[in-house]
Amino acid sequence: MSLLKTAQPLFAEEVLVELEVGELRIPVQRQSRKTVALHVLRDGSFEVRAPNRLPIGVIRSFVHSRRDWLQERLDSLEAGEGALALQYHDGAVHHFLGEPYKLKLMAATRWFASVGDGEIRLATNKLDELSVCKALQKFYLREAEVRLPERVVFWHRRLFNRDLPELKFRAMRSRWGSCASHGGIMLNISLLRAPLPAIDYVVVHELCHLQHFDHSPAFHALVGSVLPDWKARAELLTVPCGF
């Protein structure tokens, strides 16, 4: 399962589709209509609108046939958001754990990164936009590998008495995290931009998919059992999701 940038409405049915960056979940909205269609909502998420009596298998087949279109739409949405939201020059503002920091860029033969005193200090051999972007991703990946496992362990112990899932981190275009059908969890390194309450919400959300691989009432009840304020936490995910 994957977590899109914005909280999803509660639907009884969903379709899973595998894209380049992982699994995308798309809620199904049943309506009095004759055709099935994919729609992009204002928040950038997707929705399937289908006739009331159309079998879910037919809906799945339709969505899977539109994988290329879905990937193109995701790439287009993320490219537009990134161009508006993020810059990579000296003094540009990027968030870390919910707080704004200015980039302090330095030319050096070896990569270096540190954070403090209102600055994210980056040393890289080139200072063009692409090189700085890659250096910044390396910084967020390092911090994710250091800081996020302890949040996963903490919430996993609150939820389950079982082995920890496989945990990976990467830059993701349009989702904060995902839980694969085999039980592995992937977290977006951009989570380090968000405040801790929002980070914990994403961690709990993905962990709960180990028990409920859907967004049923049982899934949300499990999330709410440890995070009764999960909706307020989800609203804190306002920082950019991609790079």
Results as ranks from 00 to 15, higher is better:
3 L>V: 04
7 A>G: 11
9 P>N: 06
15 V>P: 00
17 V>H: 00
24 L>A: 01
25 R>G: 00
28 V>A: 05
29 Q>T: 06
30 R>Q: 11
33 R>M: 15
34 K>Q: 14
38 L>C: 12
39 H>S: 13
39 H>L: 13
44 G>P: 02
45 S>N: 12
47 E>G: 02
51 P>F: 13
52 N>V: 09
54 L>P: 09
59 I>N: 10
61 S>Q: 15
62 F>D: 03
63 V>K: 00
63 V>E: 02
69 W>C: 01
78 E>T: 14
89 H>T: 12
95 H>D: 10
95 H>V: 07
96 F>C: 08
98 G>T: 08
99 E>H: 13
100 P>V: 13
100 P>K: 10
106 M>H: 15
110 R>K: 15
111 W>V: 09
114 S>Y: 13
114 S>L: 15
117 D>Q: 15
120 I>D: 08
126 K>V: 12
129 E>T: 11
130 L>K: 15
133 C>H: 10
135 A>G: 12
142 R>Y: 13
143 E>F: 10
149 P>H: 03
151 R>C: 04
154 F>N: 10
160 F>K: 00
163 D>M: 07
164 L>G: 05
167 L>Q: 02
168 K>Q: 09
168 K>S: 08
169 F>Q: 01
172 M>C: 07
174 S>W: 02
175 R>A: 07
178 S>W: 00
179 C>M: 07
181 S>V: 08
185 I>V: 11
187 L>Q: 02
188 N>D: 05
199 I>W: 01
200 D>P: 10
201 Y>T: 02
202 V>L: 02
204 V>Q: 00
207 L>K: 02
207 L>T: 03
208 C>W: 01
215 H>K: 02
219 F>T: 04
221 A>F: 08
226 V>R: 07
228 P>F: 08
231 K>I: 14
236 L>S: 07
237 L>R: 00
241 C>E: 06
242 G>A: 13
242 G>H: 08
